[in-house]
Design a protein around this nucleic acid. Sequence first.
DNA 1: CCTATATTCAACACATCGGTTGATCAAGGG
DNA 2: CCCTTGATCAACCGATGTGTTGAATATAGG
Lengths: 112, 112
Amino acid sequence: MSVDDGQLDRAFAALGDPVRRAMIARLSRGPATVNELAEPFPITTQAVSRHIQVLEAAGLITRTRDGQRRPCHLVPATLEALTSWIDEYRLETERRFRRMDAVLNAMKEQEQ
Amino acid sequence: MSVDDGQLDRAFAALGDPVRRAMIARLSRGPATVNELAEPFPITTQAVSRHIQVLEAAGLITRTRDGQRRPCHLVPATLEALTSWIDEYRLETERRFRRMDAVLNAMKEQEQ
DNA sequence: CCTATATTCAACACATCGGTTGATCAAGGG
DNA sequence: CCCTTGATCAACCGATGTGTTGAATATAGG
């Protein structure tokens, strides 16, 4: 809820880039401006600005205004939507594996 | 562990495509062949075959052999690596938010 | 054997991505 | 006011992604 399929597309794809993942990691420790986020990377501020736009379009961050700065803030709810999606299928798979194990064990019992 | 950064790149990027996410959903209910996975989509089997290769390269699935079939199996451990990555930063952010709330409440106390 | 089925490989078209440079806009500070 | 700083817009480029068609490979099965 609150994230449609297109948002899932954009959010997962956004996390597929190591630069953007590093930005997420940085933002988990507090808000940061474009220049602050750009600092660790050997790329132009423009490139970073576009990475930020991608993260914003994905709903992974929001932006506020502080004079001429545009600080970025992580949105944990969107991260949570991603883990929820993944966990749904991971848990189903693990349940299935456990059922399969049970069947195999039962067959082993039978054999003896 | 067991998944390097390149794997994270590939796995997150792989989930950025709705066709591949649908395949993951399908595979959570049990193994499936290329043709079975292709059935719901209006694309060629070749295209599906390449989606499968992408999922395999990302470590999200493995493949076995059954005669001329090549069944796909979901790898829950890789899904778990993704949720672990996300949760690390989501939880850090939420902790930070709670600390901030505490400070704000303390300031409110002070005022009275 | 010969043929049908399951899957993959190869070559191509087209869109998107991630970077660049150069120009522009907006807010602050002497 | 002007000039600097923070950020973005626009145009371009090479690489990658996703689909197609057509050919190839491999196993199954009469």
